[in-house]
């Protein structure tokens, strides 16, 4: 308590240092804090970080077009599972603290436990993506620039009607595009 009151007293008194020095220290300190904060945010967006808990499904993406393809563009976990704009990203990171707690409690500490919970985790993620209109898909896939002449008949039919009207969103149909599907019984549209 004495430490806090001492600090507060110092904070309220003018310093002997020049105003430029004080402002400069605040400016540099601000840059360092923001740099460190963003470095931390980026570290928790890395594939290695995700794999530290979700290794079985991180490996599954290696079999999909989002990992290896003719153009060499690839997506990592955070591209699809973390919002890209700053405010939504912070909200998602705070929500993820619950997931860290679940991991610490051992909810998915073994591969068996993980696969047992897989459907529950998938349903939550699909619901999240449905609620934000598949925003993470749309960060790369822009409907306005889709060339229907390059798509198959079924894709053209669905994209030009259900997707165009907003009746459906990407994840309604494109489930399991980067991971194996869990048991899909009783998932709407997958009978």
């Amino acid at each position: 308590m004495k430490l806090v009151s001492n600090f507060w007293r110092k904070l309220c008194k003018p310093s002997n240092a020049a105003v430029g020095v004080v402002i400069g220290m605040g400016f540099v300190g601000g840059i360092l804090f923001w740099g460190a904060f963003n470095t931390g945010m980026e570290a928790t967006n890395s594939e290695a970080f995700c794999a530290s808990c979700h290794e079985p499904i991180v490996n599954e993406i290696k079999e999909t077009i989002h990992y290896s393809n003719r153009s060499g563009v690839r997506a990592i976990c955070s591209d699809c599972h973390v919002p890209h704009n700053w405010a939504d990203k912070i909200v998602r990171k705070v929500q993820a603290s619950k997931e860290v707690f679940a991991f610490v409690m051992g909810n998915i500490s073994t591969e068996e436990k993980f696969y047992a919970r897989r459907k529950h985790l998938a349903l939550r993620e699909w619901q999240r993506m449905k609620e934000n209109d598949s925003q993470e898909c749309r960060n790369c896939h822009d409907f306005d620039f889709m060339d229907f002449s390059e798509q198959g008949q079924r894709s053209v039919k669905q994209h030009s009607t259900a997707l165009a009207s907003g009746e459906k969103t990407c994840v309604d149909c494109h489930k399991g595009i980067a991971h194996q599907l869990p048991d899909m019984s009783d998932v709407p549209g997958w009978q």
């Binding site: 600090f7 110092k10 904070l11 002997n16 240092a17 004080v22 220290m25 300190g29 360092l32 804090f33």
Partner: peptide, 12 residues
């Protein structure tokens, strides 16, 4: 708060 603590410490 972090920057303040660091700055006050350096100045002290």
């Amino acid at each position: 708060v972090g920057v303040s603590v660091f700055t006050v410490w350096i100045l002290s």
